[in-house]
């Protein structure tokens, strides 16, 4: 069973969003880290890069797999999580405690298109079948 946290928003490509005051932290879900296995590298955009909803902004790599990251929201990258450069395994250890990028949101209404915890749980259940 994959862990899902209340209060976060989720995308179908298994990213989570923690939105507050026009900014958002973006990370990958417990389900995503489990399917990848030991994460060895996180390819992150640079500060000030623009990201757009549903578009690729980076990638997560394990030894035998790679998965592109799709941004659940649009905006400007204000920060990337430098700790992941040295210890990408943090995403395995605590996927919800470690965001990948912080974004200053350009369109708050995009948040409405994301799933809440219950909806995401239902989505995962459906995917499993």
């Amino acid at each position: 069973m994959s862990k899902i946290i209340e209060g976060l928003l989720y995308s179908e490509s298994h990213e989570w969003v923690r939105a507050e005051n026009g900014t958002a932290e973006i990370g990958i879900t417990d389900y995503a880290q489990k399917s990848l296995g030991n994460i060895v590298y996180v390819d992150m955009p640079d500060e000030d890069d623009e990201v757009s909803q549903n578009e690729e902004f980076g990638a997560v790599e394990s030894v035998k797999a790679a998965s592109d990251l799709y941004s659940p929201v649009s905006g400007t990258v204000t920060e990337k999580n430098d700790a992941l450069e040295d210890e990408p395994g943090l995403l395995n250890k605590d996927p919800y405690g470690n965001w990948i990028i912080r974004v200053s949101l350009s369109d708050l209404s995009e948040l409405d298109s994301l799933m809440d915890a219950a909806a995401y749980k239902e989505f995962l259940d459906k995917e499993a079948h």
Partner: peptide, 13 residues
Amino acid sequence: TLQAREQHIRREK
């Protein structure tokens, strides 16, 4: 190592 760059994992990417 760094095999995630390669064709057998990334395919068209």
